[in-house]
Amino acid sequence: MIRGKRGRVVEPMTGRRLGGARGLVFAAVLGFGIAGAQAAGAVTVYVSNEKDNTISVIDGETLKVTATVPVGQRPRGIILSRDKTRLYICASDSNHIEVLDLATLKITRTLPSGPDPELFVLHPDGNRLYVANEDDNMVTVIDLEKGTVIAEVPVGVEPEGMGLSPDGKILVTTSETTNMAHFIDTGTYKVVDSVLVDTRPRVAEFTRDGKYVWVSSEIGGTVSVIDARTRKVVEKITFGIAGIRSEAIQPVGVRITGDGKLAFVALGPANRVAVIDAERFAVRKYLLVGQRVWQLAFSPDESKLFTTNGVSKDVSVIDVKRLKVVKSITVGRFPWGIVVK
């Protein structure tokens, strides 16, 4: 997205040929895009498609796919740069991080990441990237400007979840096999604490006020809420959906609203997103989305929540105010990561 004079947004099309239905959608959007882009504001959704090795670009207002960008091998975790002009992509099988320029939708550089990067998180200073290396039981810290590895921190087996406190001082990384959430001081790179959670923790997410860390346990079927200061589990949220086997409830992605009132948890093969009262830690309702819902992302104003549904190959859009699923948009195969700008 280029911000022209007077702050009007112009969206240049990549002109890439797309086949079939998506081609028609693309052509239609092309017609509306020029006119619509001005009105559309700047809400764009980026989705990494694990098997297709592409990034899908969705217009946040029209809810249609506007572009599909080929990237490296097995793209999983994705993050926006602090100024939101670039997208960092974990190309797991290529063993590096790719940087996508969002204006031109072209890969401009690659960064070292350590082997098999899955998920990462950006320090508030916008320069340090903390990458979980799944196969090597490591967290690699990268300096973005210099493009070099600053440190390599050994952690538990199969690290995945990466949660950074709002002040950037504490990094929480989950270890899938040892069922731990490790608290790491980002200044010293020392593990200051390890908290036991339920089986196969996947995602660690801090609340905006930095008071709690929510950790989802995929096999355990629960979400543990850890007090960030005392580092004790204060609450364990369980899920129950009538008619769904409890083994199918596998919490993965977690997102909490900025005001700390609502939390959303993706429940994997249960095909639902749980809506939780984050103050009382009580589940309010379950929203039906596509199959094997994985990760979640809010729109900047938190009016919409987007989910990636791995098996059904689509992204579901949830109206946060009404708590209703509005639409499901087809993207590539096995959509994994999702960010919204």
Binding site: I241, A242, G243, I244, N271, L288, V289, G290, Q291, S312, S316, V317, V325, V326, K327, S328
Partner: peptide
Amino acid sequence: AGFRSVLGVSIIPPYETY
């Protein structure tokens, strides 16, 4: 209530989601 699973893999018009 006995049929709580998603209806197959496709989204049926006029519905836009599952």
